[in-house]
């Protein structure tokens, strides 16, 4: 009897230790999320509907991106509204945290390509509930990630992680921390809560319309809400395509044209 209890206790201890060893760290989860989009390049059309008070604003844009080793380059071309039609943003984002991203904007009315600084990342993206920093790819090590708990969200098993910007990146961010509910199966964020420096909830993003496109899990619908402003933005992706073999030159300044 004593021997059986001893064996069971030992097995339980080993199982517990094993289980603990299997538990990913916050950074592991962030890395897995970063790895979901394994494509070398991609393109998608995005439509945004901003609902604020009685006002509805609609935006349309096209996005292209390509990986260059650990780094990434992307172009956003605005299609609507009319006053920003054909305006384009080219950004080169670097995995190395000590290196600032390079960004250029193309103004079609003057055929002008102009280098811009990263200081505008906190600003709103096209008057939506998204900030400019929400649109761009964020390097894994731009934040320190901590696993908070395993949980369920909408009957889906999730990890909940907390991400706090590293000091070098904190000044360029609206957020003191982000709390993310990560689907254990697809490694996509299902929900993200954004908090300010006083710990108050600023915004909440939820992702849906999840489907596999070219073998890559993709959220095609996003809702970003700003409760304090009683405002929300719906975003939907269409014509999502991956691994098109886009040429490097697409992501150079010479391709920015009306």
């Amino acid at each position: 009897m004593f021997k059986t209890k001893y064996v069971m206790a030992t097995v339980s201890l080993i199982a517990a230790l094993h289980s603990h060893a299997q538990m990913p760290t916050g950074r592991d989860i962030a890395q897995r999320m970063d790895d979901v989009n394994s494509a070398q390049d991609g393109t998608r059309d995005a439509t945004m509907l901003i609902e604020r008070g009685g006002q509805k604003l609609q935006r349309k844009l096209n996005m292209m991106n390509k990986k260059f080793g650990d780094d990434e380059r992307s172009i956003i071309r605005f299609i609507e509204p009319a006053d920003v039609r054909d305006t384009q943003f080219l950004s080169w984002t670097y995995e190395a945290t000590e290196k600032d991203d390079d960004m250029w904007v193309f103004f079609p009315s003057e055929n002008l390509i102009r280098r811009i600084s990263g200081g505008g990342k906190k600003g709103s993206f096209m008057r939506s509930d998204f900030a400019n920093e929400d649109i761009e790819q964020r390097a894994v090590d731009d934040d320190v990630h901590m696993l908070l708990e395993e949980s369920e969200w909408g009957n889906v098993a999730v990890f909940v992680i907390e991400s706090v910007p590293i000091p070098a990146k904190a000044k360029d961010s609206n957020y003191a921390k982000r709390k993310t509910w990560v689907d254990k199966e697809t490694w996509l964020a299902l929900k993200v809560e954004y908090y300010d420096r006083r710990g108050r909830l600023l915004k909440q993003m939820t992702q849906g319309g999840i489907e596999q496109i070219d073998g890559i899990w993709t959220a095609t619908k996003i809702i970003m809400e700003t409760p304090r402003k009683k405002s929300r933005t719906l975003m939907q992706y269409a014509n999502v395509r991956y691994n098109l073999g886009l040429q490097d030159s697409v992501f150079e300044q010479s391709s920015l044209k009306r």
Binding site: D100, R114, R115, S117, G118, G119
Partner: peptide, 11 residues
């Protein structure tokens, strides 16, 4: 010339 310096740009 134009130089990007984090949040600023020198031209």
């Amino acid at each position: 010339g134009a130089v990007g310096l984090s949040s600023s740009t020198l031209r």
